[in-house]
Structures are given as structure tokens and as C-alpha cells.
Amino acid sequence: MNKIIAKENFSEKVVRLEVEAPLIAKSRKAGHFVIVRVGKKGERVPYTIAAADPQKGTITLVIQRVGKSSEKVCSLEVGDYITDLVGPLGKATHIENFGTVVCAGGGVGVAPMLPIIEAMKKAGNRVISVLAARTKELVILEEQVAQYSDEVIVMTDDGSYGEKGLITQGVEKVIQREKVDLCVTIGPAIMMKFVAQLTKKYEVPTLASLNTIMVDGTGMCGACRVTVGGKTKFVCIDGPEFDAHQVDFDEMLMRLKAYN
């Protein structure tokens, strides 16, 4: 049982929860995720950790209401408990001084990107963050991202904030302007697919953090399997980050609809 100690509504759909989890707060690294279950009949669902405070013993999750299970988590209030929370899971992001790193986060994917942006900056990289959302009110964490970014580019589909256009346009602008050594992308699978297509064209190495269906999250079930470079991989233990140019996004998109 993990107590919710703070809650903030980023928008109607997106909620930030700060949860008591002292052991995870201490051991997690950028890129790690947790499995959350709410209620005795609840489903186990993976969420990437957005932030952690080891002193306070808390981790932060940013969750979008998309279905029954995320709805259950988002409806919890301060003082309520998450029934089960386990982690940190997955492999941590490989952090080093690559040079210039473009961090392309879409929608709620900006939240798990935040610790990567921070770690990349602290490792000495020039960090350019491209944030994308459908509309202004869905742009999240801009201020926090800016704190660790040399530049922030905001793209909205409807042009209500930042520049009008898709995330790929923002990324392409940077690539055309300067040498980019690495691109990291987190967001909806379809978005990551197009970012990967773009960076492949420019031969910019790219990592994508995949969020697939999982049950246990520890390698036991294989529900999360994806094809990477022609080989089957488990997102929970081999990932969640993979070489985006090797990921079979079409298969992943298909498998995400398994229970729809």
C-alpha cells in the first residue's frame, strides 16, 4: 500500500501523483518504470517514473485517463492508497555525454522524458527538448523541462501554443540546423514511429521508450513482446528503451490493440 501525498491536475485528462515509495525513490534511475494496481480486482499497469525525491521517499507519476485502469489511478485523492506498487523495473537509460541530444516527448510522454532530460544535461550534453501536444492545455511540464534544456521547442497540432505542427517538424528543424548526436523519443507509439522514420532518414541514432501491455513486468509473461531488429524482445526486461530504427512499430501498434 502506497499513500498518495500530492495530486495535481495538469488538465482534465492528465494527473500528476506524488506517491510514497521510499525504496523505489532511492533505487530508481532515469528510464525506469513501475507497475501499479488499484483495488483487489485491479489490473497491473506499467507507468514510467517521472520524478523521485529520495529524501522525501516519494516518486511522481504522470498519468493520462485513457481507460478503466488509468481512470482508477487518476481518481485517487491525497491520502488514498495505491493497492500495489512495484519497481523500479526495466533497464535504466544509458546516460553519457553524447554531444547534442534531442528529447522529443509527445503528450503525457513528456513526464517520463523529464528525468532523462535532467540526466542528459547533468552528463554535459547540449539538450534540446521538443514537446508536442494536440493543444495548449495538454502541454505539460514545460517549466521543469526548460530547467534542464538548452532550448525548448513546443509544437501543437492546432497552433494554440508554440509552433503549429507535428513533433517531427520540430525535430527536423533542429536536425537541419545543427549536428544531433542522439534523439530520445517518448510518446504515443504512432508518434514514435514517425520520429524514428524521420531520424532514420537523417541517420541520427534514436532511442524510443516503449509502453506496451504488461502483466507482471518482470519478464515472466511475455505480453510486452516486440520485434526489434527481427528478434523478439521483452519490453519489461530488455527495454523499455530500444533502438527506434530497429523497432517494428506496426507490429507494436497492432499488439497494443489486443484487448480493444
Binding site: V215, C221, A223, T232, K257
Partner: peptide
Amino acid sequence: ENLIGIMSCNEYLTR
């Protein structure tokens, strides 16, 4: 083998 509806026994039984 990665088509929908194909899964490991672990996944099936765990569910």
C-alpha cells in the same frame, strides 16, 4: 508468433 491471440502459458495462466 507475435500475432494477437498468441501468448505464453505464463501469460495465460497468470491472467
